[in-house]
Amino acid sequence: MTVPILNASGCLDALVAPEVARSLDAFVTKTVTPLPREGNPPPRIAETEHGMLNSIGLQNPGVDGFLEHHLPKLASLEVPIWVSVGGFSAGDFAQVCSALDSCDDVATVELNLSCPNVEEAPETSAELVAAARGATSKVLYAKLSPATSDVAESARAVADAGADGLSLVNTIRGLQLDADTLRPQIANGPGGYSGPALRPIALACVYACAAAVDLPIVGMGGVTCGRDALDLVSAGASAVALGTLLFSDPEAPARVRAELEAEVRRRGQGFAAGLRGAAHGSTMSRPASAE
């Protein structure tokens, strides 16, 4: 079996680092909103003991700028392009999806329903997915937050609203104070927590959602090696995305892919066949394939 390796949205600029983008099975863009955004004031990041916080605030050129200046260059990389879409209302999501609908260079649309660093849309995730579904026939992935009491319920709701897949998980809100001033290290206060600390949380979300819905899942959250990727696939992911890891190791996609293959090989052919969802034993039907 082959497990596609992607980047997590906002963790790679393919135009600055094309070699890194080409080492992925698909490149996921930074979130695109209807209008250009400068993003949040610096400082925007802080390292923690077991992860990092970020509050970038969806800095992006807006959908028009993206289509005119970025997408043509991204297409020349010859890597499948997933466009992350964000907004502050169902209308925003529909507007960006509609603008992307006729772009052959866009393979998949990922809906960023869960950015912890900007104001949330008033509609539910299901309503945002429904609005996007009405605006595009592209493959639609819904990116969900782990900060919910029942992520499986969110998964069922977005599946019913027309999502074709799930991206699990986004960052979770955290805060860190400066040791001297006891003020937040990040200008905006809290930030999205990512890195190794997020790993068990992401794994639990993938595990719960794979049992709840029959959709392909891109698992992400704190992956640092092939074994971490193997865990996500065993929990039900059909693809794996790398986020914070790319900051410290731009060569990680090739390494994680090779380590994952070695992990699977070590366990034998019979294991590989039943790998996806293996953590569920015989209690669930096999989740659908990503491709």
Binding site: G10, C11, V16, A17, K30, P42, P43, R44, I45, P250
Partner: peptide, 8 residues
Amino acid sequence: YGACYGCV
């Protein structure tokens, strides 16, 4: 290397 947008 331009990936994180943290250092603006």
